[in-house]
């Protein structure tokens, strides 16, 4: 059983209530951006599987909102650094928010690509070769993102580590889907364009999982101060003193 290891830092109030409000505001902005990104993935996947053009258009449109949110949050980060010179937890919070924002923006880009594949498939004979794996992968990476954002809101290192460990689970559906699509192209070259669209969609979904994992790494850094990027699983678990039992 993995023991809950959540950050209690930052629980005490700042002497400067304005600074506390600014930090709260930027955290809320980030979670709002994350929520919007989750919705965008759901819409893009729905559109890919159903071929609904209006849903796909909506997902593409959302990417512009997400891009704008990235710019605004970056601006908030710059202002806090300039005016408050944050240190320790507050400094790590601002650094983490800036990096998580970048990952969320890139998730938005990938979701937008999935939606664009859906728009292409509406004008082409749909070939649903890897539908089950695509659905499973989309569900998996959406869950990863939701859990990563939840871990951020709760400052939970354990929840973040679970997200990082979950990233490798997405490989099964990704590989299986890819094999089906490659076989379909070999069997019937006329499906090439449609299958290639699905391959690009699978790759985008897989990348979303990677970005969710990156977000989880930032939460570990935020709470513990340890940089766990590019760390293998055994070293990570040893460093954080957690087990993989669930």
């Amino acid at each position: 059983m993995m023991e809950e290891k959540s950050g209690s830092l930052g629980a005490r109030q700042h002497i400067s209530t304005r600074f506390a409000e600014e930090l709260e505001a930027i955290k809320n902005s980030l979670l709002e951006m994350g929520g919007k990104t989750e919705s965008q993935i759901r819409l893009a996947t729905e559109a890919l599987l159903s071929g609904a053009g209006d849903t796909a258009e909506e997902a593409v449109q959302m990417d512009r909102d997400i891009n704008q949110m990235e710019v605004e949050i970056d601006d908030q980060c710059a202002r806090i650094i300039a005016r408050r010179q944050p240190a320790a937890f507050d400094l790590r919070l601002i650094i983490s928010i800036a990096k998580v924002t970048t990952d969320l923006e890139r998730i938005g880009d990938e979701a937008s690509k999935v939606a664009q594949m859906a728009l292409k498939s509406t004008v082409r004979l749909p070939v649903r070769v890897a539908e089950n794996h695509t659905t499973a992968l989309a569900t998996h990476v959406s869950n990863m993102l939701r859990r990563a954002l939840d871990a951020f809101a709760r400052l939970s290192v354990d929840a973040a580590v679970r997200v990082m460990l979950a990233n490798k689970d997405s490989m099964e559906d990704y590989d299986a889907g890819m094999q089906l699509l490659e076989a379909a192209i070999r069997d019937n070259p006329a499906t090439l364009k449609s299958c290639m669209d699905q391959i690009w969609a699978l790759r985008s979904l897989d990348r979303i999982g990677d970005h969710a994992s990156n977000i989880a790494e930032q939460i570990v850094y935020l709470v513990t101060g340890s940089d766990v990027r590019h760390m293998d699983e055994a070293t990570l678990l040893n460093l954080l003193d957690v087990s993989t039992d669930s």
């Binding site: 002497i15 240190a87 400094l91």
Partner: peptide, 19 residues
């Protein structure tokens, strides 16, 4: 000390949470 202090009291002081 200024990025990841070990003691909560240090953390509170340098982040302005010290009462």
């Amino acid at each position: 000390i200024f990025t990841n202090p070990s003691e909560p009291a240090t953390e509170d002081y340098i982040t302005g949470r010290y009462g």
